[in-house]
């Protein structure tokens, strides 16, 4: 049973195939509107989410399927102390595929090890969020038309930002990729990501605390939010949350065709005034998220023999 817990669960060929399917869906959504008729997606979100949960649900409805959902640990048996393994076995009886978000790292892997249906990791704490990465890749493809030869700046919380870790892992598979890692000292990219992905792959990168140094070089600027929920200490959060704010003034230093991405939600790290800039593509990213999830649900159900 194929599940997607980590972006590395998908080969480059499979990622290309998913992007192609998503592009086909964008071209002709009506052709896919009954693809999952009679199939059920269960969304289990033990941590708050707007975009990810709604995009999974919207994706399944877009394929003609149905959705059952649990939103919040308080409204499920998890509140009674049910284990993830038991939850996964139970949900397998009701649905054909499940998407799960959980605050603990590794939770989706535990679910996949115990479920008899495909499991999609919709975020496990600060760890992995593969469908956000697929969303980001589809967006980069639609904006740039390629994955090779790009200089990508990642800015903000690179320590706890799961989307950043997954995106670095995915893009590192392509040639000519360079990274600028822009963060305060306390939120630098974890050494294991640098070592296992960047160093082992010989990927060039610059680590800096200055957005100004990086901006003129970038083809893509990927902004992230400093996440309150990842801090044990409120003081640290308050001290770091305003480290980088992207404004129209700062953007004057950037290339005219640089793409500005953000996994959302934003707090204040991108000024609302930037939304009108043609380089801003974070709301296009949201829409792309729905299409790529449609492609992923289709693929996993087909591979499970459910379609």
């Amino acid at each position: 049973m194929k599940s997607v817990i980590n972006i590395r669960d998908l080969s480059l060929e499979e990622i290309d195939e998913l992007i192609q399917t998503a592009l086909d869906i964008i071209d002709d959504p009506a052709a896919y509107a009954r693809s999952c008729l009679g199939r059920i997606l269960a969304t289990l979100f033990f941590e708050p989410s707007t975009r990810t949960r709604l995009s999974f649900e919207s994706a399944m409805y877009g394929l003609g399927g149905n959705v059952i959902s649990v939103a919040g640990a308080d409204s499920s048996s998890a509140a009674k102390g049910e284990s993830i393994a038991d939850t996964a076995k139970t949900v397998s009886c009701y649905a054909d595929i499940m998407a799960m978000r959980h605050p603990k790292e590794g939770a989706a892997l535990v679910a996949a090890n115990n479920a008899s249906i495909p499991v999609i990791n919709a975020g496990d704490g600060g760890h992995y969020h593969p469908t956000q990465t697929l969303t980001d890749l589809l967006t980069i493809w639609r904006e740039k038309g390629r994955f090779t030869g790009l200089t990508v700046g990642l800015c903000g919380d690179l320590k706890f930002g799961r989307t950043v870790h997954s995106l670095i892992t995915a893009l590192s598979c392509y040639s000519g990729i360079r990274f600028y890692l822009i963060s305060p000292e306390e939120l630098k990219l974890p050494s294991y990501v640098k070592k296992d992905v960047l160093h082992s792959g010989g990927i060039p990168y610059v680590q800096t605390t200055s957005m100004e140094i990086a901006l003129p070089e970038l083809d893509i600027l990927y902004m992230t939010r400093v996440q309150r929920e990842r801090f044990f200490n409120e003081e640290d959060y308050l001290r770091l949350k305003d480290s980088y704010i992207l404004t129209p003034e700062r953007l004057k230093k950037a290339k005219p065709d640089m793409s500005i991405m953000h996994p959302l939600p934003r707090v204040n790290e991108i000024s609302v005034a930037v939304d009108a800039d043609p380089r801003a593509c974070y709301f296009k990213q949201v829409l792309n998220g729905k299409y790529i999830r449609m492609a992923l649900i289709l693929k996993l159900l087909q591979e499970a023999g459910t379609l």
Binding site: I84, K104, G106, L109, D124, H127
Partner: peptide, 29 residues
């Protein structure tokens, strides 16, 4: 933050990820 911190029944599994530097990592986190 690892799932093993709250799910008491889970086995703690570490896998050899870097034989040269003898690095083992938790399979969950």
């Amino acid at each position: 933050r690892c799932i093993t911190s709250t799910e008491q029944e889970l086995p703690h599994i570490f896998r050899l990820t870097d034989p040269v530097n003898k690095v083992y990592r938790c399979v969950y986190c």
